[in-house]
Write a protein that binds this DNA or RNA. Structure first.
Length: 604
DNA sequence: GGTGTGACTTGTACCAACTGCC
DNA sequence: GGCAGTTGGTACAAGTCACACC
């Protein structure tokens, strides 16, 4: 096994070095090759080099985070009743009560875990007097608070244009003041300059901590990261920062510990920034390197299926799943989070083995909750040896036992890294997603298509990737209704076409009976009308297909995180599809690097 | 080799802003 | 101009993975 990995490693090392040598130079030159005029000051950033890989910047200056506004107590006419008795809550207690009251419309507030967590945390923040009094959540009447917030929300919606303009200007001012930093002399947009306001933690799926109080972040909780010679951000009046540090090996501007899990959170740059863009580009380059050696890796993991060592067999099957099904690595999780799994953390209960199913042999049926508690359900025919191994792995195990009990994501990634420097489980997802997009685009696009048809093809290719990566979304609430409206439009258009055709026929007849310039013009006019209506119908039908196929599939995640944007840019250029039809403004900003450096011949 | 921590990416839901239709 | 439907941006949760430490 190890020997084989070494052979592969050497082979890859040569390819990687070859790539690396050419990469930065060709990257930058390709970046400019598209448009000399586009070479602006901000573009030049890409030519700058850092003194080492770990150093992320030389100079960093920013204003620090923007804090959530202080709590504004409820007006006196919004009562709170406990057990039928009117109570005036202390501001801190009232604030937490409002978090709950605002959520009453959501189904999860009725869950026992949510209620228990909320009530426990709420009582901790109460005054002694309040705590003595308020002992049962069901006796609390939040309905007046709830009504107040519904009304407030309505008021906001009904604001005049001028009032909305004032808010917009205030928001722009904040963005201008806090939303940018200066990194190595360039003004860069910050991703999340506003600190998260206090509230109740929701979590996704059956999260054991749902309903817990997310406490207000104070300056004393925040660490600032900036360069020593920069103007250090000032803490709000009467406060001071937890710490000010000058660590240029990290990219974050500020951090704090969130109180729910005790994990750090960060203020970081926007995806359009140079720092993020370079990282993104590197990610896709690593995935392209995998393309060079994936055949050797596949041969190796197939050999591992018959290894004498159980660990190797399990690793071989796990990498096969990661490669074939684009499963996530599946790190171990603590008890304090929702019960979700990935490849390495799959349990026996998550798979069913069928020697024969739906006319196929050796079918594995997967059914588990993955990231964000999204269900992964798939029936996959696998190689006979994989099937045999799985039977072996589950032998004498209970449903709740680990399927792959001899491996972890750490040693799996270690083995992958020996195959190819920088290779980890998630690289397979990027690689398979981008490869799928490229293949599908090649298959689904022909020159004779209209731009609308090409866009449908693109969305279908994008959809194939989203399905592979299991990117699901809840069907939009208005889906059925909007489909019905669209279908009515289609029906109406069909009727219009029938009518127009009839009129055309009549015009032709009239022209035949008594030809004149006027009758000729009328025929031409009717012909044009029929043609225009048919085009409109086709467009509507394409829209219908696209929307129907997209009902529960989320395309955004793969577009933003898994599909090498150069594939898209090259396809747009080759097929004369305006890039604006595929990427919106934000996406174009994020992928500026790809838009500049890619010509129509790019191949992933 | 196991565990904890930190840094960063990936992911969905929600809501405000925008768009197109009547 | 008003409204409904759609889109885009934001919020923030939940992953991955590297690294330090024992």
């Amino acid at each position: 096994m190890k020997r084989c990995f070494c052979v592969i490693s050497r082979f890859i090392y040569i390819s990687a070095e070859r790539n690396k040598g050419a990469s930065l130079v060709s990257n930058v030159s390709r970046y400019y090759s598209g448009s000399a005029a586009a070479k602006t000051r901000s573009d030049l950033r890409w030519e700058e080099s850092k003194s080492s890989d770990s150093q992320k910047w030389s100079r960093l200056e920013h204003k620090g985070p923007y804090f959530a506004p202080e709590y504004d107590p409820l007006p006196d006419n919004v009562p709170f009743y406990y057990d039928g008795r009117l109570l005036k809550l202390s501001p801190a207690t009232e604030e937490i009560a409002t978090f709950y009251a605002k959520m009453l419309d959501h189904e999860y507030t009725s869950k026992e875990v949510f209620q228990n967590n909320f009530f426990t945390d709420w009582r901790e923040e109460m005054t002694d007097e309040e705590r003595k009094l308020i002992k049962t959540l069901s006796k609390c009447d939040f309905s007046h608070m709830h009504k107040y917030f519904v009304e407030k929300s309505e008021e906001r919606k009904n604001m005049t244009k001028e009032e909305k303009q004032v808010l917009k200007e205030e928001s722009s001012r904040l963005m201008e003041e806090y939303g940018f930093c200066v990194l190595d002399g360039h003004r860069e947009k910050i991703g999340n300059f506003k600190l998260e306001p206090p509230g109740l933690f929701r979590g996704r799926g059956e999260h054991p901590k749902m309903g817990k109080l997310k406490k207000r972040i104070q300056p004393e909780h925040v660490t600032i990261n900036c360069s020593q010679d920069s103007k250090i951000p000032e803490a709000p009046a009467g406060h001071r920062w937890k710490r000010v540090q000058h660590d240029n090996t990290v990219t974050w501007l500020a951090s704090w510990l969130e109180n729910i899990h005790g994990r750090p959170k960060y203020i970081m740059l926007n995806p359009s920034s140079k720092l993020k863009g370079e990282k993104d580009w590197q990610k896709y380059e690593t995935a392209r390197q995998l393309k060079v050696c994936v055949n050797a890796i596949r041969k190796q993991y197939k050999r591992d299926w018959t290894s004498r060592e159980m660990k190797s067999r399990q690793r071989g099957v796990a990498i096969y799943f990661i490669d074939k099904l684009a499963l996530r690595a599946g790190n171990e999780k603590d008890e304090e989070s929702a019960d979700t799994v990935g490849c390495c953390s799959l349990r026996v209960e998550h798979i069913s083995l069928h020697r024969r199913l739906d006319g196929l042999e050796h079918v594995v049926e997967f059914d588990f909750l993955g990231k964000d508690s999204i269900r992964y359900y798939n029936k996959v025919p696998v190689e006979k040896q994989v099937f045999k191994n799985l039977k072996l792995f589950i032998k004498h195990k209970d449903p709740e036992d680990d399927l792959f009990d001899r491996i972890t994501t750490i040693n799996l990634n270690k083995a992958l890294n020996e195959c190819m420097p920088g290779l980890t489980a998630k690289v397979f997802r990027t690689f398979n997603a981008s490869t799928t997009l490229q293949d599908q685009l090649n298959k689904l696009t022909t020159e004779d298509m209209t731009v609308e048809e090409k866009i449908l093809s693109y969305n279908r290719a994008n959809r194939a990737v989203a399905i592979l990566c299991n990117h699901q979304r809840a069907a939009p609430k208005t889906f059925e209704k909007s489909m019905q409206i669209l279908q009515e439009k289609i029906q109406k258009k069909k009727e219009q076409i029938e009518e127009a055709k009839k009129e055309l026929k009549e015009a032709k007849k009239a022209h035949k009976d008594a030809p004149s310039d006027k009758s000729k013009k009328l025929v031409e006019k009717k012909e044009k009308l029929v043609q225009r209506l048919c085009e409109q119908l086709k467009k509507l039908q394409l829209q219908e297909t696209d929307r129907e196929e997209n009902k529960v599939i989320a395309l955004g995640t793969s577009k933003l995180n898994y599909l090498d944007p150069r594939i898209t840019v090259a396809w747009c250029k080759k097929h004369n599809v305006p890039i604006e039809k595929i990427y919106n403004k934000t996406q174009r900003d994020k992928f500026t690097w790809a838009i500049h450096m890619t010509d129509e011949n790019f191949q992933f």
